[in-house]
Write a protein that binds this DNA or RNA. Structure first.
Lengths: 205, 205
DNA sequence: GCCCCGCTATATCGAACCGAAATATGGGCG
DNA sequence: CGCCCATATTTCGGTTCGATATAGCGGGGC
């Protein structure tokens, strides 16, 4: 299981850090978007890890308000981390609000769909650039190189597919103005023929 | 924002359904893994949607314990759904425990890495088959076709990349037995030279 | 010199969501 | 007949998010 505690241990596998450091490394680190966690979960996680002896805490600076608490992983922490990593692997999850919206592109105004696609293209191009920067930054082990390469390969494949097929999606979108959904009179249930194809897509086995 | 309420509305865009139906459609529907929600969030979401007049509730069967409550989307519900879909699109999230583990492949026993990769290949091949089945099942609108095509394209790209580069990852893995992490004597902090490359990967800008 | 802004750094808290168990019932199957 | 499975919903503890509060410190602009 990959909870916030595991993410913290992962970050600390390399070097000691404060909670703030960990947050930034997670959100700006290699393969951005692969991992993340909020402060609201990182700090409690670090406290529990310290309790369990998987990490040690050291305060640096006045500790009134300024000054930080720096954590370092212990030998038990390393062992626990690698042991958990070797355990059962839960299923991956890909949550894409963009793709979700595209499922209903046929019901959305064409202009809006166009903008969404443009934004998505820009976002993916940014991510590809970030991954390439990470790859160029350091040699990294075989595992890290693989993850970077994987990210780049899939991002490129998705980007290319989007560029090649965006026209079809845009053509399928609503010609007219803002959200003008298929309307049914009260008591009128849509049957198989009138059902929007997008909703059917959610259901097909 | 795509919360559970939006997922319920999406499912109801096509046809009326019970909470149980919605759950199954989400987890088995097209592009499996794109969306999901638990019962513990679906039922409260449906109750709130009914309160807000975005869906209507109808009980079917005895309603003692047997019998279900069937929900149907209203005109306001449709309008609300499409309007929200047209709103700002949050960033996508890809959480892959497998890739996360691969980041640290260099610290894991080779045999374990091999098994993980085998499982991942099998999982992706299953998903590709599922997407193809969905695609073949019905024509679907332009949007849905695009999403299916996208899923297939990226899955294939990832699968191919994994098959082509798995050997490098396996070679980088620990030759020896179970989790034998790099050990540091107490008080011995790893510096840039001894830092595991995987952890560096999390940090690289 | 002063003020405002942004970065560092941590804490807090309500809301959302998950995941698993509990409950109840009807149907298939050996 | 008994058992397991599918349907259908509720409940609940635990995790995580996301936003807000607090506070010192360094730098840019005027």
């Amino acid at each position: 299981m990959i909870d916030v505690r595991m993410l913290c241990l992962a970050a600390l596998m390399g070097h000691e850090a404060s909670g703030y450091d960990i947050k930034k490394e997670l959100e700006k680190g290699g393969s951005t978007g692969l991992v993340d966690a909020s402060f609201g979960s990182i700090y409690p996680a670090l406290a529990r890890l310290a309790e369990d002896g998987l990490i040690t805490a050291r305060t640096e600076g006045g500790r009134g308000r300024t000054g930080k608490t720096i954590y370092a992983i212990t030998a038990e922490g390393r062992a626990h981390f690698l042991k958990t990593l070797s355990g059962p692997i839960p299923e991956e999850k890909y949550r894409s609000p963009f793709l979700f919206a595209m499922l209903f592109a046929d019901e959305l105004p064409r202009e809006r769909v166009r903008v969404m696609i443009d934004q998505q293209i820009a976002q993916w191009e940014e991510k590809i650039a970030a991954v390439e920067a990470s790859r160029a930054a350091g040699p990294g082990g075989a595992g890290a190189s693989f993850v970077f390469g994987f990210g780049e390969a899939t991002l490129r494949a998705g980007l290319e597919f989007l560029k090649r097929h965006r026209r079809a999606v845009e053509m399928g979108a609503r010609d007219a103005a803002p959200p003008a959904p298929t309307q049914y009179r009260a008591g009128d249930r849509p049957d198989a023929m009138t059902e929007p194809a997008a909703a059917a897509a959610l259901r097909t086995p």
